[in-house]
Design a protein around this nucleic acid. Structure first.
Lengths: 333, 333
DNA sequence: ACATAAAAACGAATCGTTTCGTTTTTGCAA
DNA sequence: TTGCAAAAACGAAACGATTCGTTTTTATGT
C-alpha cells in the first residue's frame, strides 16, 4: 500500500519522469528498463489510477447506466460490455435506476458523470431530454433513442421484427391478437407497435384497439394488463409480449387463468430466450444477439474515444431474430 | 467542463480552503456560505472526485466482482448493492469474470484494486487463495467463502435448506433422488451436498452416489449432467438443481427427454423464482431473499469502512426459503 | 579522438482537491 | 474603547502521477 513511482525511481537511480515514461510505453535505456521492471516486481507497484486521472483528465472509466438488472437481458448486456471494455483497459462504473422514475434516472447519470467517466453507455427511459445535451463525453444509447437528440445508438430493428412476428400469428389464422406493450413514448415500444400495425395493414386486417395494452414495462404491470385482456368479453386468441419483463408478466397471467399455450392462447415473447427454451411448449420468441450488441456498443465507443473521431452520430440497427417454437397454434378463421 | 474550486474561490473573494471546508460541511461565515452556494450554481461546479480521491485516499468507489451476470440472480444482487451503496454516496465499479477461469478472476480483482476502491464485494469461484490476504481494504464475500481465509461473508444456510428440500422429496416417497451440483470444492456446493446427505441420514435411506453429479455450475454443463442421469438404466425419480444455472440446465434436459414434471420426474430448483412462477406446473424452489442479502452486505461494508471498526470478521448466514410449488409428486415406495 | 546530432534522462510545474499550522476577524466582557 | 479568547479564513504544502522544456548521455562519422 502506497508504493509510488517515486520509490521506483529512487530504487533505480533514475528520475520519476523516466519511470513514468517507461510505464506508459516510452523508450528507455535497456538497463533502466530491466531495473524498473525488477523494482516494480519487488515493490509490487501499481500505478495509481487516480493520480494519473487527475493529470491526464482521462479516467479510463466508462459509466454504464441501466434500469435495474431484474431481467437477465440487461444483466447480460452489462456483463458483455464490461468484458469488452476491460480488454481495452477500461473499468466500468455501473449505476442502475428505477425504471419508472425519471428523477432517479437523471440523478444516477449525474452521479456517474461526477466520477469523470470518459464515456457513458445509457439505456434511457425518459424520452424527455435529460440534460444530456451539455455533456461533452461520448454517449451511446442502447435499446432506445431519445427524441430530438442526435446521439450514437445501437438498437434492434423493432418495426420489422415485430411485423414479422405479428404476421406469423396472423398467418396462423388469428384475428384477435393482443399486444402487451410498454408506454409508446419510449421508442422501442412505439416501433414495436408500428410493426404490429404494419402487419395488420399488410394483411388487410382491422386493428382492434382493445387488444393493445400500454403500461410500465414491468412484470407486475404486464401481469395486470394481461389479466384485463383475458377478462374481456371476447378475449384475444394470441398475445405478444413486447419485451422480456412484459413477456414474463403475460405468461404469469396466462398461467393464473389456467390457460394452456398454445391450445387456449398463442404467444410470442421478446428477449426471454432462457425461459423460452425450458418452457413447455418451446416458446416462439424474438431474440436479440447480445454479444453483437455489446461488440457494436464498445466498438463505437472506442472509435469515439479516439479524439480525432468527430464523424456524424451513428444509429446502428441490429437484426433481431424470430426463434420458432411451438407456442403459436394454427386456428381456423 | 473544468470549473474548479479555485474559480469558485476567486468569484467569492475567499480562499480555496474556505470553499473546500464549506463543501465538506465545515462552518463558514453566513455571507460566504451564500456566495459560495450561488457561485456553485452559477458555474455548475461539481467537485472533482478524482482530485479529492488523490488527496484523501478514499475514492468512494466499491468494487463488485462477480461471475458473468447471465442469471438474473447475480444481476439482482448487483443492482441491489449498487442502489444501497449509492444512497451512501458510493459508486460501484463492476467487474465480471468467467466462472470457470481462476486466472480471469484474479486479474479482474487486481484490475479493480488498481482503481483504489475503498472496499471489495466478491463472489469468489476459486477456493485457491487469491492473494486476498495482502489486501488491506474491507472485503465482503457473498454466497461463498474461501477455505482458510477469515473474511466477512454473507451466505445462505445451505445445509439446512437443502436438507429440508431433500427431506420433502424423500417424504413424498422418493428414493432415487438426483443432485445436480457444482464442484464441491466450492463451499455452497459442498454444503448443499452435506444437506442432501444429512436428509438421507435422518431418514435412514442409503445414498446412491450414481445420482450425485458434479460439474461446472453452468446451464450447459447441467444439461449434460442431467442427460447422463436420465440415461442411466435406472434413472432418478426426482432431481434437485443446486443453483439457478444448474436448475435451468436440468429443466432443459428434462424437456428434451420429453418428460413431464412432476408426473415423470419431480424437481426442486434453486434461485430461479422468475422461472418457477411462470412454469407449468409451479415449481418448488429454494429462494434467497436478495434484498436481505444486499442490505446485509452493504450494512457490513459501511461498518467496516468506519475506520474505528476492527471487530472480528463476521459470517452472516441468512435463511433461504423453500417455496412450495407442484413439482414434487407423491409416489409409492 | 572530436564534433555533432539524436536519444534519453532530468527537474520543475501542474492537475484539483484537502489539510494543517498560522494569521485575521469576530463577538463579548471589562 | 480595549483586550482576548474563539471562530473563521488564509496560504502553502501535499497527494502521485504526467508533461514539457532543458540538460546530459550516447552513438555516429570523420
Amino acid at each position: 500500500m502506497g508504493v509510488t513511482i517515486k520509490d521506483i525511481a529512487r530504487h533505480c537511480h533514475v528520475s520519476t519522469s523516466t519511470v513514468s515514461k517507461y510505464i506508459n510505453g516510452g523508450k528507455v535505456r535497456e538497463k533502466n528498463k530491466i531495473a524498473i521492471d525488477e523494482a516494480i516486481q519487488l515493490y509490487n507497484f501499481k500505478t495509481n489510477a487516480i493520480a494519473r486521472g487527475l493529470k491526464t483528465k482521462r479516467s479510463s472509466l466508462v459509466g454504464i447506466v441501466v434500469p435495474t438488472l431484474d431481467s437477465a437481458f440487461f444483466g447480460n448486456i452489462v456483463s458483455g460490455i464490461e468484458a469488452l471494455l476491460y480488454k481495452n483497459g477500461f473499468s466500468s462504473i455501473i449505476s442502475t435506476f428505477i425504471p419508472g422514475d425519471p428523477v432517479s434516472e437523471n440523478r444516477k447519470i449525474e452521479f456517474v458523470l461526477e466520477r469523470s467517466v470518459d464515456a457513458l453507455v445509457l439505456v434511457p427511459i425518459c424520452t424527455k431530454r435529460l440534460d444530456l445535451e451539455g455533456i461533452t463525453i461520448p454517449i451511446i444509447l442502447i435499446d432506445r433513442v431519445i427524441d430530438d437528440f442526435a446521439c450514437d445508438s445501437v438498437t434492434p430493428n423493432n418495426i420489422e421484427i415485430v411485423e414479422k412476428a405479428t404476421s406469423k400469428i396472423i398467418e396462423a389464422g388469428h384475428k384477435r391478437i393482443a399486444l402487451v406493450n410498454g408506454f409508446d413514448n419510449i421508442t422501442p415500444f412505439r416501433d414495436r407497435l408500428k410493426g404490429y400495425y404494419s402487419a395488420f395493414d399488410k394483411h388487410n386486417l382491422p386493428i382492434i384497439k382493445e387488444y393493445i395494452s400500454f403500461g410500465e414495462a414491468s412484470v407486475s404491470e404486464a401481469y395486470k394488463m394481461m389479466n384485463r385482456l383475458l377478462e374481456l368479453r371476447v378475449p384475444p386468441t394470441a398475445v405478444i409480449g413486447a419485451n422480456s419483463s412484459l413477456s414474463l408478466g403475460v405468461l404469469l397471467s396466462i398461467k393464473e387463468h389456467g390457460l394452456l399455450i398454445p391450445e387456449d392462447i398463442s404467444f410470442i415473447g421478446f428477449d426471454c430466450y432462457d425461459l423460452a427454451i425450458v418452457y413447455r411448449p418451446l416458446l416462439t420468441t424474438i431474440e436479440q444477439d447480445i454479444q453483437q450488441i455489446c461488440e457494436n456498443v464498445v466498438g463505437l465507443l472506442l472509435r469515439r474515444l479516439q479524439k480525432s473521431d468527430s464523424s456524424p452520430k451513428e444509429s446502428i440497427v441490429l437484426k433481431a431474430t424470430l426463434i420458432e417454437g411451438n407456442s403459436v397454434a394454427q386456428i381456423n378463421g
